[in-house]
């Protein structure tokens, strides 16, 4: 049974159709990276998986449960899906430890001692054991994002969604977050990652999905998608992302006078 099974997914915001028929499945233990230009619908796709966005049409199954079914207990499904946001979204009024324990206690009904123990284990995993009593505002962006990952892991998810987890970080802080994600992938976590970090996708992903204009243009192993893309749109995008200093003036329609 696939961990995620998406078929014929459509999503519109008013008149704007952001997703136009997506079919995608993610197998247990697989790391799938979604790349593509901004506005291509990759974040919307990710947010549909745990129903932060309500799909307009189509079906999504997570571990066999149809989340698009109106009778689905979405809170129960979400417990099994960890999500990491671009803006971290740590709870500002709670310490790091409380950020990681509050859902364990209120949702999973774990005891305080048990929740604290699991918080320590997961803080250790992301290398922030000594920050348990700090408030989010006292941490760097990279540290905050690692806490956010620990918070999600403490719920024992079978699937992790990452929505551009390094896009809001200063360049020198990107590495520490990617290192944690690489570790997770090595442990066999099933991951669906929307990212602009092409090196990460190339190195860690089992499969790369290229999206543009609300559809999946092509997908395959990273070596294929990056090494010999079949579609022209993929080639153009990769050229612009991987060699930004070599984008020519004619390519973007600029007519610079000399």
């Amino acid at each position: 049974m696939s961990t995620i099974e998406i078929s014929e997914l459509h999503k519109s915001f008013g008149k704007l159709e952001v997703l136009r028929g997506i079919n995608l499945s993610v197998e247990p233990g697989e790391v799938v990276c979604v790349i593509g230009p901004s506005g291509s619908g990759k974040s919307t796709l990710l947010r549909c998986v745990n129903l932060l966005e309500e799909p307009t049409a189509g079906s999504i199954r997570v571990a066999g449960v149809e989340v698009t079914d109106p009778d689905c207990d979405i809170d129960a499904v979400r417990r099994g899906i960890g999500m990491v946001f671009q803006q971290f979204n740590l709870f500002g009024h709670l310490t790091v430890r409380e950020n990681i324990t509050i859902a364990q206690r209120r949702v999973l009904k774990r005891s305080r001692a048990e929740a604290n123990r699991i918080a320590s284990v997961n803080l250790d995993r992301v290398g922030l054991a000594e920050k348990a009593d700090a408030y989010p505002a006292q941490l760097s962006g990279g540290q905050q994002q690692r806490v956010a990952i620990a918070r999600a892991l403490a719920m024992d998810p079978q699937l992790m969604l990452f929505d551009e987890p390094t896009s809001a970080l200063d360049p020198e802080l990107v590495g520490e977050v990617l290192a944690v994600m690489r570790g997770l992938a090595a442990e066999g976590m099933t991951m669906l990652v929307v990212t602009h970090e092409m090196a990460f996708a190339r190195e860690v992903a089992n499969r790369v999905v290229f999206m543009d204009g609300g559809v999946i243009v092509e997908q395959g192993p990273p070596a294929e998608v990056f090494g010999s893309p079949r579609e022209e749109r993929t080639r153009v995008f990769l050229h612009r992302v991987l060699e930004p200093t070599r984008v020519s003036e004619t390519e973007i329609g600029a007519h610079l006078k000399d």
């Binding site: 932060l52 809170d75 979400r78 999500m83 803006q87 709870f91 500002g92 918070r151 999600a152 719920m155």
Partner: peptide, 18 residues
Amino acid sequence: VPKGQLEAARTLGMSHTR
């Protein structure tokens, strides 16, 4: 309060009220 706070809480399985 930023919308992301509610989203993060819901993502962890909390009900809207919680």
